[in-house]
């Protein structure tokens, strides 16, 4: 058994005989009384999401997951293919398990893949990823006067986001993966 201090995004917890991967966790302090950890976890079998709250210090059944740095290669139908940088072994992971963050994947980036019994169960992306802008409509005179301070641009992996009007085609920019928004010029 492990302690609640070891709960992190991507760890796998056995709860009532099912395995769940932690997608979000948050310490909460109800004021009087000890602190708790509220987790949102996704069932590895059914994909359904549950919320479980543990008291800090309570023992939790965290199962061993191996974390490996891997490179994202390409999408294969509903699956995403990653390559272990050490032995060039490839693994595939279903898009449902990766969730919404799958849209930020871009060929060649390095991510951390959690493997449970050699099966990938989680992917952690960098906090910020650099993309090349492949489409950005030119800023029109009077834009900022009429309140249009952002515009939609397209990035080299097909992702569309809002960016400041001064961003031009061919530039490299950083996107904040937590918010999915423009962060800065790269």
């Amino acid at each position: 058994m492990s302690s609640t201090n070891e709960i992190r995004k991507g760890v796998v917890i056995r709860h009532q005989n099912d395995l769940f991967v932690v997608v979000e966790f948050q310490h909460i302090n109800p004021g009087k009384g000890a602190a708790f950890v509220r987790t949102r976890m996704k069932s590895l079998a059914a994909g359904k999401v549950v919320e479980i709250t543990y008291k800090v210090g309570e023992s939790v059944d965290i199962v061993e997951v191996e974390f490996q740095t891997m490179q994202y290669l390409y999408k294969n139908g509903a699956n995403y293919v990653f390559m272990n940088m050490n032995d060039y072994e490839q693994v595939e992971m279903n898009g449902d398990l990766i969730g919404d963050e799958a849209k930020y994947l871009k060929e060649g980036i390095e991510v951390i893949v959690g493997l449970f019994e050699e099966v990938p169960v989680s992917v952690q992306l960098p906090k910020k990823i650099t993309y090349k802008v492949v489409e950005a409509p030119p800023a029109v005179k009077g834009d900022s006067a009429s309140g249009n301070v952002t515009k939609e641009i397209t990035l080299d992996n097909g992702l569309k986001i809002q960016a400041p009007i001064f961003i031009k085609e061919g530039e490299e920019i950083l996107v904040n993966i937590e918010t999915g928004e423009y962060s800065a010029r790269a």
Binding site: K32, G33, F36, T53, K55
Partner: peptide
């Protein structure tokens, strides 16, 4: 747990 106070037990259900 052994050392759980009343409020800890209360919050396990409440939270």
């Amino acid at each position: 747990c052994e050392n759980d106070a009343y409020e800890d037990l209360f919050y396990k259900i409440f939270l």
